[in-house]
């Protein structure tokens, strides 16, 4: 689908973002086997934006993460990068995983995506996207980057996450390469 890879046009009076993004939604069928094919089929493109104004125009109409049903995910990725391990940009990558107790996810997700859109991570081209996952007992947010082996980058993403999420002490953070995730 062409829409997935093309940035929308912006008007001159809008505030351009460093990157254009696509927002995806997925819902897992609990109990069903999750093959790569079914994962791909479950990904629905919600919208795209290239400016701050276009972002708010989309975001304001979305259901807040805390109001989503269990087993749903939002994936916010740079245009041209599909939120899948198999995408070229993700193949050597990994993700920071932050597990949140119930009640925190909407605020944390908003802080995370505002930091991503505003280029607050300061890791060059390394960020691929972010995911929020609504689960039964906890919620999870992840930040995906391109090069899992780049310790300077992954440390900087971790430190930025700690700062922008205002995580309670003891909140667990874990880095996983996509290769490890594939094996599990």
């Amino acid at each position: 689908d062409k829409d997935e890879v093309v940035a929308p046009e912006i008007n001159p009076n809008e505030h351009k973002l460093q990157y254009a993004y696509a927002l995806w939604y997925s819902r897992r069928n609990p109990g069903k086997q999750n093959s790569i094919q079914s994962y791909d089929r479950n990904l629905k493109l919600v919208g795209r934006f290239a400016s701050v104004e276009q972002f708010w125009g989309l975001y304001s109409h979305l259901t807040r993460p805390s109001e989503l049903t269990t087993h749903t995910d939002f994936h916010l990725f740079k245009i041209g990068i599909k939120p899948m391990w198999e995408d070229e940009a993700n193949q050597r990558g990994g993700k920071w995983i932050v597990r949140l107790r119930k009640g925190l996810v909407s605020r944390c997700w908003e802080n995370l995506i505002l930091a991503m859109l505003g280029e607050q991570f300061m890791v060059g081209e390394e960020i691929c996207g972010a995911v929020v996952s609504i689960r039964f007992q906890e919620d999870i947010i992840c930040v995906w980057n391109k090069t899992a082996s780049d310790l300077g980058t992954t440390n900087r993403i971790r430190d930025t996450l700690r700062r922008i999420l205002h995580l309670p002490s003891g909140a667990s953070m874990e880095y996983k390469t996509h290769n490890e995730s594939l094996k599990n």
Partner: peptide
Amino acid sequence: GTRIVYERAFLMNLRNSPISQ
């Protein structure tokens, strides 16, 4: 070129601008 950096407060201020609706 220069990286386009926006602080959280700046982004929040644009939330209610007419072209964000």
